[in-house]
Design a protein around this nucleic acid. Structure first.
Lengths: 294, 294
DNA sequence: GTGTTTAATAGGCTATAACTATGGAACGCT
DNA sequence: AGCGTTCCATAGTTATAGCCTATTAAACAC
């Protein structure tokens, strides 16, 4: 039983004629007759009585007609729903983001996108890189905003911006007044860093190592605000990304002048993953926030 | 969009693999891939994400899946309903019958058929031949029981029985005691006949004419019972078919011995008309009441 | 790395739905 | 009644398109 057979059947039933039905369906009359016969054969029942030049539904045909119509309608509805889904910028977008980016970067793009496309249904998952990648691979999130570079053959990444790193110092610190500093200036300072699962911890340690500095870690936390409070209390120093800067009476931020002392923020999607129209729209929306200059 | 594409799509969605789906659908894997791609092309949307060796529905695929399933289910339901209709002896049977046959012949066959197939839904239309033929052609009745022969290229007929004609006489009539009589014996008798629309009137006149008798008609009615009452009252005589005989104190029935003084009862269907299983069953049931002899 | 699994590609084959042309039956008209 | 017209079915042909096998490319497992 094929779709065109149902279409032809309905056309004959509605026009009461094979010839007119063939015209309506843009097909030669014998082709249509043939398909109707095939349908009748498969059903094991005559659907039409061919009475001279009038064609009339049999009882079985009358039973079959509404069902055939319903199927054609549902077929169209299924097609339309999928098309609608693609043509309108609406539907679910699930975004994963790491905690060291989420509060600083995401609010503005999300608010603007939500205003532009009220039909978009955004969900944000905040988690560390490893678990975000799991979710990305599991299809639970559509895209992930995290620190570049992302090794991993199965993801596609787009850089959004590269930001300088800043030393976070107590306001009373001897380096706090400088306009910039070198990481080697921080040697022997007690360090406060994020917990191991956070990738920015690795970034910070990495840049230190490159400057031949091995940080002495005295405190670990899950968020910058705890670290800042501790630093403000004079317990040590830290390194934070540019976007985490904020006005605080107890802390100073001094830019780290070392070559390559930076963090790159990017967005990742699963390679081969098909994105719906909203999802693609959000991705390019994010890219419009990328900063071309370093 | 074709039915097999929907089947393949559901198979892949359910098995999570093109290869397993191809096995399930008894088709080579490339064929299945091809049809899925074609479907995706028509919908303008990717339905599956091909992620390495795992295959997963896209959002659009998830939307499309339940609809595709529903369509396949309805397709089967439509097919099944038609099949059921043909396999079981149930459903509507509409029977037309002329008034000079209806009360005498039909009750027994109908009762037996109804007992044998309680699911059969019989309807009887009693009307004269001309209007029954109209209804037959209009598809309002499935078969018509009437007097043969039926001229008309567009009907198919089956003879059921041939019955002798009887002279209907007042009990006191001089011929009432005879075991049989000739039509010419009735010459000059006042005739009571059915109205013009009734074919049995024509039959009666026809047999008379053949016997060189021109009936002098003094009364016309729509039913035999009126005629019998009148005949019983001595107003004249009539001719009735064998099956209309009944025990009456005021009338006698004497068989007409003339060659070809008979009426043949048969059943007619519209040529080219497809009969459902019940309808065919009732037709052959009627034929089982045919009398081979005479 | 190597072997295995999986989906996509390529090319040939076949099945089938399309077409044109024609036949036959039914209906309308004169 | 004869004629022309209309309509569906049939016959034969063409072309589409779905299926196949063989192969490639990539991903995964060991």
């Amino acid at each position: 039983m094929e779709v065109h057979q149902l279409r032809y059947f309905c056309a004959v039933a509605e026009s009461g004629s094979f010839t007119r039905a063939a015209e309506r369906e843009q097909v030669a009359q014998p082709s249509l007759s043939q398909q109707i016969m095939k349908l009748e054969e498969e059903l094991g029942v005559r659907l039409f009585d061919r009475l001279g030049r009038t064609v009339r539904l049999t009882g079985s045909g009358q039973v079959f007609l509404p069902r055939a119509r319903a199927i054609l309608v549902e077929l169209k509805a299924a097609k339309d729903e999928v098309a609608e889904r693609q043509s309108s910028v609406s539907g679910p977008v699930s975004i994963g983001v790491i905690p060291t980016i989420a509060p600083y970067f995401l609010p503005l793009p999300m608010a603007l996108f939500s205003r532009k496309y009220p039909q978009a249904n955004m969900t944000v998952v905040e988690d560390v890189t490893a678990r975000l990648m799991d979710r990305l691979r599991a299809g639970q999130i559509d895209l992930a905003i995290l620190a570049m570079p992302m090794r991993g053959h199965d993801v596609e990444t787009f850089q959004l911006r590269t930001e300088r790193l800043f030393a976070l110092l107590p306001r009373a610190h001897r380096l706090a007044k400088k306009r910039k500093l070198q990481l080697k200036d921080l040697r022997d300072q007690p360090f406060l860093l994020l917990r191991e699962e956070h990738c920015f911890r690795d970034t910070a340690i990495e840049v230190c190592k490159r400057a031949r500095v091995t940080p002495h870690i005295v405190f670990e936390s899950g968020q910058f605000s705890s670290i800042m409070a501790m630093v403000g209390a004079g317990l040590g120093i830290s390194i934070v990304p540019e976007m985490a800067q904020e006005q605080r009476p107890d802390c100073s931020f001094v830019v780290v002048a070392d070559e390559r002392a930076s963090r790159t923020v990017g967005v990742a999607t699963l390679k081969g993953r098909y994105l719906s129209r909203v999802q693609r729209a959000f991705l390019s929306h994010l890219q419009s926030f990328a900063q071309k200059d370093n």
